[in-house]
Design a protein around this nucleic acid. Sequence first.
DNA 1: CGCGGCCAATGACAGATGTCATGCCCGGAC
DNA 2: GTCCGGGCATGACATCTGTCATTGGCCGCG
Lengths: 201, 201
Amino acid sequence: MIRLLIADDQAMIRGAFAALLALEPDFEVVAQVATGDQVVPEALRTRPDVALLDVQMPSLDGLAAASSLHEQLPACRVVILTTFGRPGYLRRAMEAGALGFLVKDAPPEQLIDAIRRVHAGLRVVDPNLAAETLSVGESPLTGRERDVLSAAVDGGTVAEIAGRLYLSEGTVRNHLSSVIGKTNARTRADAARIATRNGWL
Amino acid sequence: MIRLLIADDQAMIRGAFAALLALEPDFEVVAQVATGDQVVPEALRTRPDVALLDVQMPSLDGLAAASSLHEQLPACRVVILTTFGRPGYLRRAMEAGALGFLVKDAPPEQLIDAIRRVHAGLRVVDPNLAAETLSVGESPLTGRERDVLSAAVDGGTVAEIAGRLYLSEGTVRNHLSSVIGKTNARTRADAARIATRNGWL
DNA sequence: CGCGGCCAATGACAGATGTCATGCCCGGAC
DNA sequence: GTCCGGGCATGACATCTGTCATTGGCCGCG
């Protein structure tokens, strides 16, 4: 019997996954949580064999939750599940100690299969995404560049970003210029789009 | 017995919903499709009582699929299901003849309940979203403004947008300026964000 | 018919943005 | 120790953006 924990912020999806997985005779869903910070406490209480974590969750995302879970309960294997197949996510998931990484548009059998494999200690990664991750490479952005770009995604002006980060406008412009160069973007908005798509933010 | 059609581009979600709904003794999932353009043909073949349509689907979105389904098979009630509770979606869903509108972070029981109610001919709408829709109001954008803003979302320059739409740069700037004013945004990127959030694109 | 709205375009202007050169400080690598 | 890269800043520059006034053509409506 494989004991499962499901973490996803969307209740309907969570319930649907639980229903899907409960159909398997050797699966048992022992916990469901909606936020990242509930993962570790609930896992310590219910001792699942495998944790299914969505990347997008409020208060603590699935990747961060994975790493603290891996640290505090190494016996529990982690499968990361996400809507968006972003290269950076996969890289971070691996660094966080996850064994499995799936995108939600794969067929359900693949999830079921992945859970069994991961439970057996094997790694399971979407092959297309793995290839893309290798081709995209790591984020070329420095820490500060990432900060500045993150502050720019909501469409604010340079002055606002500078104010928010306590920097001079010139410095913000320099960082943004550097980011635009590194991402081969044409404008700051384009750079934000590219960095987001690659999971660099 | 309520016969169901499920349309969602993400196979895993589709399968999970199917599993969840099949647990109900009076539900029967008779069709699953991945794209909007498959909805009508499949519905004509399988004659479902209720169609569950996701908004985000390739080639034809759930809202467009809803309206042609409503036209060609009025007996089939439509429930729109979406990840993003955007006011504009709800408005368009109602115009397309949908009876139900739910966001995916509602609990699963609500979906089950909604299907039964919709099957009985009742309307089911998320109350929070309904309130927000009323407060946000209709899109203030003219057709051309929407075109220009849509072409601007990917972060291109004015020159690129002008080229793509066969307009002069000045005209594009005028439209963008108008959009920025109407959305109370500070920059074009901000306007794009606001319009997207409201489902105006 | 005239009015108003949408669309397209032009010209002009202030201000924002992206780029570049240059300088300083710091910490880690050699 | 020196060297180098990251972070921060300044100043200068060309260009791009956002705004405004104005013009004209094209509907649709009273």
